[in-house]
Amino acid sequence: MKNYFSLSGSLLLIMLFVGCHAEPDRLPILGNIEVRGTDTLYHLIPDITLIDQDSQVLKIASLDNKVVLVDFFFTSCPSICPKVKKQMLRLYDRYEHDDRVMMISHTIDQRHDSVTVLNRYAHNLGVNTDKWKFVTGEKDSIYFLADQYFVSVVEDPTAPAGFDHSGRIILMDPHRKVRGYCEGTDPESVTAFFETVDQLLKEEYK
């Protein structure tokens, strides 16, 4: 009897311990971390110049004080993009009236997805483009940017419509650091992601 109690006691302790660890105070900063002397250098999203659906220049560093949700797609994508967009729409609905949140969808098909095509796409998606930008840019810069966001994008003639890419939705903080992501093809992953976004908002705007 005595043994039984002490065993369950230590189990309880272990569970409490695990419980504490499952709830970190701050979201992690993703990517390589380099320590140089007294400085710690984090992975930063480069300040690349993009062009939005209204032909306006968008500099990533000019997204003043915003938490940004990011994805990569192309308008004629027959495979995963519509599903990811459906989930981006859920995020849009949730944060539509929260000015701290912005959204950026990058086309990986610069040849076909002109500014006009992006504009038409945004219009048919029915979203406010002050909040949700649809951008293009130099092909090399966009592919580099995808890589920096930890999204894999490759031109692949055997893939549906010639591109192979992941449907990740990325969360970037106002300091251009990547703080989380979810799988945009999986609604449950996105539901869990709501909490990640909320947590970042709490951290950034105290």
Binding site: P78, S79, I80, P82, K83, K85, K86, L89, Y121, N124, L125, G126
Partner: peptide
Amino acid sequence: EGCHMEDGSGLADLI
């Protein structure tokens, strides 16, 4: 399903 979704709901005015 990729376009019309699992529940057949489509995507806004696109699909």
